[in-house]
Amino acid sequence: MMPFGRRAGLALGAALSLAWARPASAQMDATRAVNFIQTTGNALVEALNSTTLNAAQRRERVASILRQAVDIEGTGRFILGRWWRVASPAEQQEYLRLFEETLIRNLAGRLGEYQGIRFSLGRSQQRTEEDVLVTTSVERPGTPAFNLDWRVADVGGQPRVVDLVAEGTSLRLTQRSEYSAVVQRGGNQVPALLTAMRGQLQQMQARQ
């Protein structure tokens, strides 16, 4: 834990004044979230449909966009859930490192194969207290369009993606269930998950 210093004091002050000034307003407003997804989506589509880049370069480009757009630490902590507090600081750090690598490689690798992709913003944006769910429809040639929703929250003053929801299935909920099962079946030990993640990452690296 960080000692209660100047930064924490400032953050607390900022949070209090925010709560003071706009008691009913959400942390994230819908317009900002939609604009953020529009910009990020356009950047992704441009990278994916680029004719000047080769497959590896496209993957690299997509990975860097995702690294900027996704709240990797917050999402990683959410997914580890109740095991986060069980883990030692070293395990937490190792977990976040593995999580970032796995997530970015997974998404970039899969998105990298999406040629001719198009997306359009959906009609509805649902707001909760903490975030906004921005609906998009993704189309690829020769396949029916599917719904992809982006959960956007305010992270340190910036809009960040905290979840992806495909046809009603949330990536972070599914993955939390998956990781927790690995920890439990490994005798309630977080290192069991880290070992499994390391093995998976090695396989992914071998494939690319």
Partner: peptide, 21 residues
């Protein structure tokens, strides 16, 4: 290929998909 525990993934995804349906 990507899940560390496909059974747990399928269980969670099934429930979410059904609620959506």
């Amino acid at each position: 290929a990507t899940s560390l525990d496909p059974y747990a993934t399928l269980r969670s995804a099934y429930r979410q998909r059904r609620n959506n349906e």
